[in-house]
Design a protein around this nucleic acid. Structure first.
Lengths: 391, 391
DNA sequence: GGAGTGAGTGCAATCGTTTACATGAAAAGA
DNA sequence: TCTTTTCATGTAAACGATTGCACTCACTCC
């Protein structure tokens, strides 16, 4: 049916070995022969059989990407970063979306990517020791986002620092009762990110001399709905928090929705800070901890490129910084009770009912008004902002 | 290194042919032999070489998915639907993210998926005739979302109907000056969806006896920022629209942001309706045209399954319905000028400054309050809601 | 008892490349 | 002129499965 390398060889009157060399641009082929082969291949509209090639060479030209949820903003963003780098280097991307726990188990039980990919990129998966072993036993380079796995390349943000910054921000605004909407803490698979962030939350409280109250932590599982319920739960406490740290923007969105539905406002009644700098965070004017999402994907792919080219022997680790983006949902704490004046000195009192603080007083202006007060949201961090540790 | 089928054959004291048959569950292998082979494979922790298998059998067990932007909500959602079905059928998913026009061209010039996949799923790509031909010339089943391509399987929503419903909704609320924020109309690649929707917009206006004004159309390119700018442009017209149809929720979000920043409100000053029912649409209380996104992905994957199994000869076409979801950003039109009372009879006047219409009057209530008035947002349509056309 | 049936198995060709090694010719060095 | 290098090319053995065909039994049926 389709032309094979033999047909090309015949047409160019050379051996298949020469065709193979010519087509792959290997050095020892004379210019005139190469031309002839190229033309023959063109005329037959020849396309190489990737499988035969892989079988013979042992290389697949394919990178496996394993992640828990393609349809979540964060992962699709990272995926996009990975893709751009792989695509530029002519590598294919085989996607493994783990979804629920059953698929996860099946994946590690059968290792369907074995012999199928040249390298693996694993995003934010909770890995048991056995599972980590299974990964390295594939004997291909593995780059992991979020979790640290011995023998694997590694990219992550400094979760402890990010969470610390978030909680300190609230404390500096005068808040003392600070709630936290946590991620999948209870997940039997044990994602590590929520654990680290929760730990940072406690540490900062302790450091500030604020007693820890378990009731001020509500589980949110990273979704809007769960974030909304978590906020409802926090607000139903006898002594509700005046500020809340949600460890994802989506949960913060849910929290804001609950506030709105209860007739409360951020930051007048409750301050809310998120994590991620989701694409709609600016829209909702949410104060948050930004992380360079796409960039992390690019870094992972570059690590794999390095590993594949043998450029660097030992797996490296890269930690990218987070950044506090102050928008309109966090504000100074008030002394007590809702709707009274604030006690925090040095901050001007905002008139009641002024609505969103970023709404300028020029209704009807034609051009789009300037952006609200806002930390710069970066798309991509320059490389000197990343810290590389050889190990 | 890794065990091959020969090792297994030796250990089980059978031929490689029998191993192959036993492992794949083919019928004519005796139970006792099968057991022996399975045990041998287990003991050697044998894993089949997918490339050798593909080379010999001609099947790859891999489906290619080609889409323009993985990192956009819509596509990642569809992708997730595709993945769930493929995964359940043990098919791998090879992802091709086209991104910019350069990658797009390269893809069609080199057809890197040729011989690499058993079937192709193409999402919402603008295809020239030559490109459609290139797809079918791969001689594998192709399922296309959005665009209709001769000889290919097809899933889409009824864009004309969706857009018609949206514009009629605004007209029925009494609006006469209705703007539209369009998608990538100017894109040289020529996405068809925006064209169809824009056409529907004009038709409905004509039908209602409203003259068409080119200035009331502003290009938005499907992004939040562009949506925001488009809204700014519309509001800078001498006679701005009282209602706006944005053909994606993201653009509607941008539009809402511009309104807020200009001190205006939806629906009091301008009604806004979106398209998609994005995950944050409910959060922002956006009236929109909902489409079953994940479900479309599942349908595409099922079509491919049918095609592969030979269950149905001719490619089928499925059109899934859209649905108007009324939330809080559309309301009755007023006679003239902002901030005056409304002339639309039968609708109660809403007190000035009441804010979001879904905020109940029970601040401080402990449990989460009920959802706002809202058309049911479906996750998945039952099959009888879909219409199949054999061709 | 011979022919026919059918299940279980093995043989060996095949899929389409890559690549170690061999070959031969031309260029370089002595 | 006779080696020695270098360069371009060909030969053929992998790579690791699948599968059409032939074969061997053990049955069943006349």
């Amino acid at each position: 049916m389709a032309a094979s390398i033999i047909d090309v060889a015949k047409r160019a009157k050379v051996s298949t070995a020469t065709v193979s060399r010519a087509l792959r641009g290997l050095p020892n082929v004379s210019e005139v022969t190469r031309e002839r082969v190229l033309r023959a291949a063109e005329e037959l509209s020849y396309a190489i059989s990737p499988h035969a090639s892989s079988l013979a060479s042992g290389r697949t030209g394919t990178i496996g990407v394993v992640l828990p949820f393609v349809n979540r903003w964060f992962y699709s963003q990272v995926l996009s970063g990975i893709d751009s780098v792989l695509r530029a280097n002519d590598l294919d991307l085989l996607l493994y979306n783990l979804g629920d726990a059953r698929v996860h188990e099946r994946f590690f039980a059968r290792m369907p990517l074995r012999r199928r990919v040249d390298a693996l990129i694993v995003l934010n998966l909770p890995l048991s020791a056995a599972e980590s072993d299974a990964l390295v036993s594939m004997e291909v380079p593995v780059a992991v986002l979020g979790t640290r796995v011995p023998g694997c390349w590694h990219v992550s943000i400094d979760n402890a620092q990010g969470a610390t910054t978030a909680v300190r921000h609230l404390i500096n605004l005068g808040h003392r009762r600070i709630g936290m909407i946590t991620g999948a803490l209870g997940d039997p698979r044990g994602f590590t990110t929520p654990i680290v962030r929760e730990h940072a939350y406690r540490s900062v409280l302790a450091e500030a001399g604020i007693p820890y109250e378990p009731d001020l932590e509500a589980p949110g599982n990273f979704g809007i709905e769960e974030g909304a319920s978590a906020m409802a739960r926090l607000l139903s406490l006898p002594d509700p928090p005046t500020a809340v740290f949600a460890e994802s923007d989506l949960m913060a969105f849910g929290a804001l929705r609950t506030l709105t539905r209860m007739g409360l406002r951020a930051p007048d009644d409750v301050s809310v800070i998120g994590f991620d700098d989701h694409e709609t965070a600016e829209l909702l004017n949410l104060t948050t901890i930004a992380q360079p999402v796409t960039h992390q994907g690019e870094l992972l792919a570059r690590q794999i490129l390095d590993a594949l080219s043998g450029a660097s022997e030992e797996p490296a680790e890269v930690v990218v910084p987070t950044r506090l983006v102050v928008r309109g949902t966090t504000g100074a704490a008030r002394v007590a009770g809702p709707r009274t004046s604030r006690d925090h000195p040095g901050l001007p009192d905002r008139p009641e009912g002024a609505g969103h603080p970023d709404r300028p007083g020029h209704p009807g202006r034609a051009a789009e008004p300037p952006a609200p007060r806002d930390g710069t949201a970066y798309d991509r961090l320059p490389d000197q902002h990343t810290r590389t540790t050889a190990r």
